[in-house]
């Protein structure tokens, strides 16, 4: 590892005198998630209202893209997590 030019100050958690940052406040985190949920709802509603061009046969399915995005990520993460059982080795595996 290269040496940092200025050694970063390292504290465990927020010190007593440290001000609260944006994402320290649960209210802001909640707001962010609510915005995401609302946008998800909007694009699904739009899918029902707008006629998309369809080229691929799967695209005819209502809400195809939202389903594909959600299921695709779940499958991706699920498989990747299982891959660790086979592929994971200690960090110094090649050094030994």
């Amino acid at each position: 590892m290269s040496e940092p030019t200025e050694q970063a100050e390292h504290r465990e958690g927020a010190g007593p005198d440290e001000r609260q940052h944006v994402w320290d406040k649960p209210r802001n985190v909640k707001l962010l998630f609510n915005v995401l949920f609302a946008l998800c709802a909007v694009v699904v509603v739009l899918d029902l209202l707008i006629h998309r061009h369809e080229v691929h046969p799967w695209e005819r399915l209502v809400a195809f893209y939202p389903l594909f995005g959600f299921v695709g990520i779940v499958i991706l993460v699920g498989i990747a997590k299982q891959m660790r059982r086979v592929l994971m080795r200690p960090e110094d595996y090649y050094d030994g």
Partner: peptide
């Protein structure tokens, strides 16, 4: 649609603890 629901899936996986944690290790 693809991106927002992909993000939604990540949020769901993290909140339910299914999302794999970062581990000090390498993958062959």
């Amino acid at each position: 649609q693809l991106l927002l629901f992909g993000a939604l899936a990540v949020v769901w996986l993290m909140r339910t603890g299914i999302y794999p944690p970062e581990i000090r290790a390498l993958n062959i």
